[in-house]
Design a protein around this nucleic acid. Sequence first.
RNA 1: CGGGGUGUAGCGCAGUUGGCAGCGCGCGUCGUUCGGGACGACGAGGUCGGAAGUUCGAGUCUUCUCACCCCGACCA
Length: 491
Amino acid sequence: MSKGLTSRKENYSQWYNDLVIKADLAEYSSVRGCMVIKPYGYAIWEKMQSVLDKMFKDTGHSNAYFPLFIPKSFLSREAAHVEGFAKECAVVTHYRLKNSPSGNGIEVDETARLEEELIIRPTSETIIWNTYKNWIQSYRDLPLLINQWANVVRWEMRTRLFLRTTEFLWQEGHTAHATKEEAIEETLKILDIYSSFARDWMALPVVRGTKTEVERFAGAVETYSIEALMQDGKALQSGTSHFLGQNFAKAFDVTFLNREGRLEHVWATSWGVSTRLMGALIMAHSDDRGLILPPKLAPIQVVIVPIYKKTEDLELISRKAAGIKKKLEQEGITVRYDDRDTNKPGWKFAEYELKGVPVRLALGPRDIENNTVEIARRDTLEKSLHPFDGIENLVSDMLEEIQSNIYKKAVDFKEKNTFRVDTYEEFREIIEKKGGFVLAHWDGTNETEEKISSETKATIRCIPLDSEKEEGLCIVTGKPSAQRVLFARAY
RNA sequence: CGGGGUGUAGCGCAGUUGGCAGCGCGCGUCGUUCGGGACGACGAGGUCGGAAGUUCGAGUCUUCUCACCCCGACCA
């Protein structure tokens, strides 16, 4: 048990908070609802960014950057969109401060009121479509495939580190297409990118699906999402991809001349993942000793800890460690040699476990004598001794094994906690007692969906894309249903 | 916005009837330690969230105020 880390069983959300803070990923800032992402946490986010960025570029997208401020009038151009975001917008009303007449401090200069208020972007569709209007004239300008890495602000009432903060970091893709089919294809292509990123890099299995009308993005025709299951049985929406139809094109009058010389509105998509993925990563794999990071996203993949009494020992060990470090680095592995004299080995062991470093090598006088290294893996906590020779291959293989092992564990957890139920009693029982994903039939109406969510706090996470289309009867109304949908309590 | 709570050292907290501002962790120096979160000695660190009031005297009592946290309604 780690010092000061609440156990998951004791209090899951406390465990999560403790972990984020003690593993040095982030901390609360002096600004309400906003957090500071610390270097170790940001390093993980940077890894995610660089992988995703490459995936976007490999599929033809380019990065650009649009303003943080959105004129108020823009937001109201698309009816559903403004409806969805109005309640959580930060608004800039003034552009100047002045010294208080009382002499202490500063205050807003009321004479410096903005003619039109500016909204801090909660998402960028409006400013982007206002811009695209000037970029698109002909079918030759299409498709337009743009992504931006940015911060956005949503004035949430309650916040949680990484999962929901007032300001957060994300990427938002915004594309324009000549046809509906092409836009839908793009939406699905991105959904694929998200789900394979989750699987192959985060070691996180997800369910892909469409959102119900109630859960749909404000302004979208169809919203697709990936849904992940956390260890406490709650679902976390981890990425969304929207088919926007012609809603924004119409609202911002974005048209193009097609091959036949006819003017048409373009078809649009938007899609995003945020620093919320950090929350998913933390909650999906970690244990009561601390983080467990998939090696492919770990900022430090291997740490080498020297164990010594005398400085002569340290010199010998350091020479040996430098050799190992070099060999591992040649394999493309990120290694830290921690020879700080300020902490004891035991302290370091606990510290790197807390921080989720996948593999730890310990090197002491005994190892120097026997030509061995002690290898400990974070996911299973197994320790073993290995000869110095060929250590780089062993570690390299172990990293891959850890990556696949934690994925397997997550898949196993998801399967064990996914239930098919056919009655509402059973449904409530599982939602109340066990949590997890529940697959059940639903009659497709908003009323039934809202009844279920108000009675059980479980919502329809998505209508899965990949499951078989089994017909049945709605668990609440008994009306016919074309397929089971995925319910869960969600973050 | 409704309900509850907390503001005292970097962090976590104690502070009795109003009477010298404390404890643990952390931090600094020195020494012994070092194969699973070591130990000892010495030391630094405070407008007690803010303002006003009662009092010889306020961390403590009164009034006002600000901030943050937790639970609900909203959400990637």
